[in-house]
Protein backbone atom coordinates (compact mmCIF):
# COMPACT_ATOMS: atom_id res chain seq x y z
CA UNK A 1 0.00 0.00 0.00
CA UNK A 2 2.75 2.41 0.99
CA UNK A 3 4.59 1.41 -2.18
CA UNK A 4 1.50 2.32 -4.21
CA UNK A 5 1.18 5.69 -2.55
CA UNK A 6 4.84 6.57 -3.18
CA UNK A 7 4.62 5.28 -6.74
CA UNK A 8 1.52 7.38 -7.35
CA UNK A 9 3.06 10.53 -5.91
CA UNK A 10 6.30 10.00 -7.85
CA UNK A 11 4.37 9.51 -11.09
CA UNK A 12 2.30 12.58 -10.34
CA UNK A 13 5.45 14.68 -9.85
CA UNK A 14 6.83 13.45 -13.18
CA UNK A 15 3.50 14.08 -14.89
CA UNK A 16 3.01 17.57 -13.46
CA UNK A 17 6.62 18.58 -14.18
CA UNK A 18 6.29 17.29 -17.74
CA UNK A 19 2.98 19.10 -18.18
CA UNK A 20 4.36 22.39 -16.87
CA UNK A 21 7.84 22.36 -18.37
CA UNK A 22 8.02 20.07 -21.39
CA UNK A 23 4.54 19.95 -22.89
CA UNK A 24 3.94 22.55 -25.61
CA UNK A 25 1.80 25.60 -24.93
CA UNK A 26 -1.56 25.35 -26.64
CA UNK A 27 -1.89 27.82 -29.48
CA UNK A 28 -5.23 29.44 -28.66
CA UNK A 29 -5.69 28.94 -24.94
CA UNK A 30 -2.12 29.52 -23.77
CA UNK A 31 -0.92 28.49 -20.34
CA UNK A 32 -4.37 27.87 -18.72
CA UNK A 33 -4.80 24.87 -21.02
CA UNK A 34 -2.25 23.07 -18.81
CA UNK A 35 -5.05 22.67 -16.25
CA UNK A 36 -6.12 19.79 -18.48
CA UNK A 37 -3.32 17.66 -17.04
CA UNK A 38 -5.06 17.78 -13.64
CA UNK A 39 -8.67 18.20 -14.75
CA UNK A 40 -9.00 15.19 -17.04
CA UNK A 41 -7.27 12.70 -14.69
CA UNK A 42 -9.47 13.99 -11.82
CA UNK A 43 -12.69 13.35 -13.67
CA UNK A 44 -11.61 9.92 -14.90
CA UNK A 45 -10.58 8.98 -11.35
CA UNK A 46 -13.85 10.32 -9.94
CA UNK A 47 -15.94 8.20 -12.28
CA UNK A 48 -13.82 5.12 -11.53
CA UNK A 49 -14.45 5.74 -7.81
CA UNK A 50 -18.22 6.01 -8.44
CA UNK A 51 -18.17 2.71 -10.33
CA UNK A 52 -16.41 1.15 -7.32
CA UNK A 53 -19.21 2.55 -5.11
CA UNK A 54 -21.77 0.98 -7.46
CA UNK A 55 -20.02 -2.41 -7.52
CA UNK A 56 -19.47 -2.38 -3.76
CA UNK A 57 -23.13 -1.44 -3.16
CA UNK A 58 -24.50 -4.20 -5.41
CA UNK A 59 -22.19 -6.81 -3.86
CA UNK A 60 -23.07 -5.64 -0.35
CA UNK A 61 -26.82 -5.95 -0.91
CA UNK A 62 -26.34 -9.31 -2.60
CA UNK A 63 -23.74 -10.92 -0.34
CA UNK A 64 -24.33 -9.01 2.92
CA UNK A 65 -20.63 -8.93 3.57
CA UNK A 66 -19.62 -5.75 5.48
CA UNK A 67 -16.34 -5.74 3.54
CA UNK A 68 -18.16 -4.58 0.40
CA UNK A 69 -19.87 -1.87 2.39
CA UNK A 70 -16.52 -0.59 3.66
CA UNK A 71 -15.21 -0.55 0.08
CA UNK A 72 -18.25 1.39 -1.18
CA UNK A 73 -18.12 3.86 1.70
CA UNK A 74 -14.42 4.57 1.23
CA UNK A 75 -14.78 4.91 -2.54
CA UNK A 76 -17.70 7.35 -2.08
CA UNK A 77 -15.55 9.67 0.04
CA UNK A 78 -12.79 9.61 -2.57
CA UNK A 79 -15.33 10.04 -5.35
CA UNK A 80 -16.59 13.26 -3.74
CA UNK A 81 -12.99 14.43 -3.32
CA UNK A 82 -12.13 13.87 -7.00
CA UNK A 83 -15.44 15.35 -8.24
CA UNK A 84 -14.68 18.46 -6.17
CA UNK A 85 -11.22 18.69 -7.74
CA UNK A 86 -12.78 18.29 -11.20
CA UNK A 87 -15.34 21.04 -10.60
CA UNK A 88 -12.79 23.44 -9.11
CA UNK A 89 -10.12 22.93 -11.77
CA UNK A 90 -12.81 23.08 -14.46
CA UNK A 91 -14.22 26.35 -13.14
CA UNK A 92 -10.76 27.95 -13.14
CA UNK A 93 -10.05 26.69 -16.65
CA UNK A 94 -13.49 27.85 -17.81
CA UNK A 95 -12.99 31.34 -16.37
CA UNK A 96 -9.64 31.63 -18.14
CA UNK A 97 -10.75 30.30 -21.53
CA UNK A 98 -14.52 30.81 -21.87
CA UNK A 99 -14.68 33.85 -19.60
CA UNK A 100 -17.24 32.16 -17.34
CA UNK A 101 -16.86 30.05 -14.21
CA UNK A 102 -19.84 27.95 -15.18
CA UNK A 103 -21.99 26.99 -18.14
CA UNK A 104 -24.94 24.56 -18.30
CA UNK A 105 -23.13 22.17 -20.58
CA UNK A 106 -24.20 18.50 -20.36
CA UNK A 107 -20.92 17.30 -18.88
CA UNK A 108 -20.67 20.11 -16.34
CA UNK A 109 -24.25 19.66 -15.19
CA UNK A 110 -23.90 15.90 -14.83
CA UNK A 111 -20.75 16.22 -12.74
CA UNK A 112 -22.26 18.87 -10.47
CA UNK A 113 -25.42 16.85 -9.82
CA UNK A 114 -23.33 13.76 -9.08
CA UNK A 115 -21.46 15.79 -6.48
CA UNK A 116 -24.79 16.50 -4.74
CA UNK A 117 -25.93 12.87 -4.96
CA UNK A 118 -22.76 11.55 -3.34
CA UNK A 119 -22.73 14.29 -0.71
CA UNK A 120 -26.21 12.94 0.09
CA UNK A 121 -24.70 9.46 0.29
CA UNK A 122 -22.17 10.67 2.86
CA UNK A 123 -24.90 12.47 4.83
CA UNK A 124 -26.91 9.27 5.06
CA UNK A 125 -23.78 7.54 6.37
CA UNK A 126 -23.43 10.24 8.99
CA UNK A 127 -27.07 10.42 10.04
CA UNK A 128 -28.15 6.81 9.80
CA UNK A 129 -25.43 4.65 11.29
CA UNK A 130 -25.56 0.86 11.50
CA UNK A 131 -26.91 -1.79 9.18
CA UNK A 132 -29.92 0.25 8.04
CA UNK A 133 -27.73 3.18 7.08
CA UNK A 134 -25.42 0.86 5.19
CA UNK A 135 -28.31 -0.56 3.18
CA UNK A 136 -29.77 2.91 2.56
CA UNK A 137 -26.38 4.14 1.33
CA UNK A 138 -25.97 1.09 -0.93
CA UNK A 139 -29.29 1.89 -2.61
CA UNK A 140 -28.21 5.50 -3.15
CA UNK A 141 -24.91 4.24 -4.59
CA UNK A 142 -26.85 2.17 -7.12
CA UNK A 143 -29.44 4.85 -7.95
CA UNK A 144 -26.69 7.46 -8.40
CA UNK A 145 -25.00 5.49 -11.16
CA UNK A 146 -28.36 4.69 -12.83
CA UNK A 147 -29.02 8.42 -12.92
CA UNK A 148 -25.77 9.34 -14.75
CA UNK A 149 -27.02 8.76 -18.34
CA UNK A 150 -30.41 10.36 -17.59
CA UNK A 151 -28.85 13.51 -16.13
CA UNK A 152 -26.57 13.78 -19.15
CA UNK A 153 -29.52 13.38 -21.52
CA UNK A 154 -31.62 15.96 -19.69
CA UNK A 155 -28.76 18.46 -19.72
CA UNK A 156 -28.52 18.08 -23.51
CA UNK A 157 -32.26 18.86 -23.71
CA UNK A 158 -31.73 21.85 -21.45
CA UNK A 159 -29.10 23.19 -23.79
CA UNK A 160 -31.22 22.74 -26.89
CA UNK A 161 -34.03 24.71 -25.22
CA UNK A 162 -31.69 27.46 -24.08
CA UNK A 163 -28.95 27.72 -26.68
CA UNK A 164 -25.57 28.80 -25.41
CA UNK A 165 -22.90 30.58 -27.39
CA UNK A 166 -20.72 27.89 -28.92
CA UNK A 167 -17.80 27.46 -26.60
CA UNK A 168 -14.35 26.75 -27.79
CA UNK A 169 -12.87 23.53 -26.44
CA UNK A 170 -10.05 21.15 -27.25
CA UNK A 171 -11.37 17.68 -27.90
CA UNK A 172 -9.58 14.81 -26.25
CA UNK A 173 -8.64 12.24 -28.87
CA UNK A 174 -7.13 14.84 -31.21
CA UNK A 175 -4.26 15.55 -28.80
CA UNK A 176 -0.71 15.47 -30.17
CA UNK A 177 1.65 12.95 -28.50
CA UNK A 178 3.61 15.72 -26.76
CA UNK A 179 0.49 16.49 -24.77
CA UNK A 180 -0.89 12.98 -24.59
CA UNK A 181 2.14 11.48 -22.81
CA UNK A 182 2.08 13.73 -19.72
CA UNK A 183 -1.72 13.42 -19.64
CA UNK A 184 -1.54 9.64 -19.58
CA UNK A 185 1.20 9.70 -16.93
CA UNK A 186 -0.99 11.88 -14.71
CA UNK A 187 -4.01 9.72 -15.34
CA UNK A 188 -2.13 6.61 -14.25
CA UNK A 189 -0.73 8.53 -11.26
CA UNK A 190 -4.21 9.64 -10.15
CA UNK A 191 -5.58 6.12 -10.44
CA UNK A 192 -2.65 4.69 -8.46
CA UNK A 193 -3.21 7.31 -5.75
CA UNK A 194 -6.92 6.45 -5.74
CA UNK A 195 -6.10 2.78 -5.23
CA UNK A 196 -3.63 3.57 -2.44
CA UNK A 197 -6.04 5.87 -0.61
CA UNK A 198 -8.85 3.38 -1.07
CA UNK A 199 -6.83 0.58 0.49
CA UNK A 200 -5.80 2.88 3.32
CA UNK A 201 -9.36 4.02 4.00
CA UNK A 202 -10.79 0.50 3.86
CA UNK A 203 -8.19 -0.62 6.41
CA UNK A 204 -9.11 2.27 8.69
CA UNK A 205 -12.79 1.41 8.43
CA UNK A 206 -12.01 -2.23 9.20
CA UNK A 207 -10.11 -1.24 12.32
CA UNK A 208 -12.94 1.07 13.31
CA UNK A 209 -15.54 -1.68 12.89
CA UNK A 210 -13.39 -4.14 14.83
CA UNK A 211 -12.95 -1.56 17.60
CA UNK A 212 -16.69 -0.87 17.78
CA UNK A 213 -17.36 -4.59 17.93
CA UNK A 214 -14.79 -5.12 20.68
CA UNK A 215 -16.23 -2.25 22.72
CA UNK A 216 -19.72 -3.62 22.35
CA UNK A 217 -18.56 -7.10 23.35
CA UNK A 218 -16.77 -5.75 26.43
CA UNK A 219 -19.66 -3.64 27.65
Amino acid sequence: MRVLLFLGIALMLVGVAWALLAAPTELFQGAPQRIMYVHVPSVVTAYVALLVVFAGSVLFLWRRDPRWDRLARSAAELGVLFISMTLLSGAIWGKAVWGAWWTWDARLTTTLILWFIYIGYLMVRAWAPGARGARAAAIIGIVGVLDIPIIHWSAILLRTLHPQPTVFRVDGPALPPTMLVPLVINMVAFLVVLTALLVLRVRQERTLDALAEALEGGA
Binding site: I113, F116, I117, V124, I140, D147, I151, S154, A155
Partner: peptide, 12 residues
Protein backbone atom coordinates in the same frame (compact mmCIF):
# COMPACT_ATOMS: atom_id res chain seq x y z
CA UNK B 1 -31.17 16.59 -0.15
CA UNK B 2 -31.32 13.05 -1.53
CA UNK B 3 -34.31 13.41 -3.80
CA UNK B 4 -33.84 16.72 -5.61
CA UNK B 5 -30.54 15.91 -7.37
CA UNK B 6 -31.83 12.53 -8.51
CA UNK B 7 -35.09 13.98 -9.91
CA UNK B 8 -33.40 16.99 -11.53
CA UNK B 9 -33.48 15.38 -15.01
CA UNK B 10 -37.20 14.76 -14.56
CA UNK B 11 -37.78 18.37 -13.54
CA UNK B 12 -35.73 19.67 -16.49
Amino acid sequence: ILMLPVVLPLVI
